[in-house]
Simulated scan of single mutants.
Amino acid sequence: MRKFSKKGKAYAAAATVALVAASGGAAYAYWTTTGNGSGTAANSAGGGTVTLHATFAAGLAPGNSTSVAYTADNASNTDTVVGALTATVSTSDPTHCLASWFTVTASTSTSPVAHNSTGTSVGSGTLTFLNDAASQDSCKSATVTVTVGSL
C-alpha cells in the first residue's frame, strides 16, 4: 500500500468533506406543500357557585339599626363576579317575633371574586328592627337571620 504525502492527505480530507457535504445536502431535500389544521379544547364550565355570607352585630332592639357586611367565598379555580344582592330576614320564632318587624337592605355593584378566595367583600346594607305598637317582647333573645342571594 502506498503512503500518502501531507499534500495527498489534505486532498483526501477535502474530498471526504466534499463527499459528506454533498450526500448530506441530499438529506435536506424536501417537497413543498400546503396544509391546514385545527385544535379544540373545551373551556371551563364556569366559576360555579359562590357562598355568600351576611355579618352583623348582635343585640338589636326595637327602633335600632345595624350595618350588614356581605362577603363571598369562591372555592372554584375560576374568577367570577357577584351581581346584585337580595336579602331577606327570618327569625327563630316566626309566629311571635315577626320577620315583618325587620327590614334589610343590600347594596352592591358588580363585585369580582377571585378564585380560591374567602371573605371577599361584595356589598353592604342595613338591618333595622322596626318599632311596632304591639309588644315585641317575643323577639327578646330571638335569633335573627339575614339570608342573602345574588341575581
Rank of each mutant, 00 (worst) to 15 (best):
residue 58 A to H: 06
residue 132 D to M: 09
residue 119 G to R: 04
residue 12 A to P: 03
residue 148 V to A: 10
residue 107 S to M: 07
residue 142 A to V: 05
residue 134 A to H: 12
residue 39 G to E: 09
residue 68 V to S: 01
residue 115 H to G: 11
residue 59 G to Q: 05
residue 106 A to Q: 00
residue 10 A to M: 09
residue 59 G to C: 06
residue 136 Q to A: 13
residue 136 Q to V: 12
residue 66 T to M: 02
residue 5 S to H: 02
residue 71 T to A: 12
residue 28 Y to A: 14
residue 85 L to K: 00
residue 37 G to Y: 13
residue 105 T to H: 01
residue 137 D to Y: 11
residue 87 A to L: 01
residue 113 V to R: 03
residue 64 N to L: 13
residue 139 C to H: 05
residue 82 V to I: 10
residue 84 A to R: 11
residue 112 P to K: 05
residue 69 A to Y: 03
residue 101 W to A: 09
residue 17 V to R: 05
residue 115 H to L: 11
residue 18 A to L: 13
residue 96 H to I: 06
residue 18 A to P: 07
residue 134 A to I: 08
residue 8 G to W: 02
residue 69 A to H: 07
residue 40 T to L: 12
residue 12 A to T: 07
residue 82 V to R: 03
residue 27 A to Q: 15
residue 35 G to V: 13
residue 61 A to F: 09
residue 83 G to L: 10
residue 89 V to K: 00
residue 44 S to M: 08
residue 14 A to S: 10
residue 98 L to P: 02
residue 10 A to C: 03
residue 53 H to P: 01
residue 27 A to H: 12
residue 116 N to V: 04
residue 24 G to T: 15
residue 149 G to R: 07
residue 83 G to M: 06
residue 122 V to L: 08
residue 14 A to F: 02
residue 141 S to I: 03
residue 107 S to F: 08
residue 80 T to C: 10
residue 88 T to Q: 07
residue 125 G to V: 01
residue 93 D to C: 02
residue 77 N to D: 15
residue 9 K to M: 12
residue 19 L to K: 00
residue 120 T to N: 12
residue 45 A to W: 03
residue 28 Y to I: 15
residue 36 N to D: 14
residue 98 L to N: 06
residue 33 T to R: 14
residue 140 K to C: 06
residue 96 H to Y: 13
residue 102 F to M: 01
residue 12 A to W: 05
residue 64 N to Q: 15
residue 70 Y to E: 03
residue 131 N to A: 14
residue 105 T to W: 00
residue 29 A to V: 13
residue 51 T to K: 09
residue 88 T to V: 07
residue 131 N to L: 13
residue 66 T to Q: 04
residue 15 A to E: 04
residue 127 L to N: 02
residue 26 A to F: 12
residue 98 L to E: 09
residue 45 A to V: 11
residue 123 G to V: 01
residue 38 S to W: 09
residue 12 A to Y: 02
residue 59 G to A: 05
residue 73 D to M: 07
residue 62 P to I: 09
residue 136 Q to C: 06
residue 75 A to Y: 07
residue 11 Y to A: 14
residue 136 Q to H: 08
residue 61 A to W: 05
residue 125 G to L: 00
residue 48 G to K: 07
residue 66 T to V: 12
residue 124 S to H: 05
residue 85 L to A: 01
residue 38 S to I: 04
residue 86 T to Q: 09
residue 140 K to P: 04
residue 52 L to D: 03
residue 95 T to M: 08
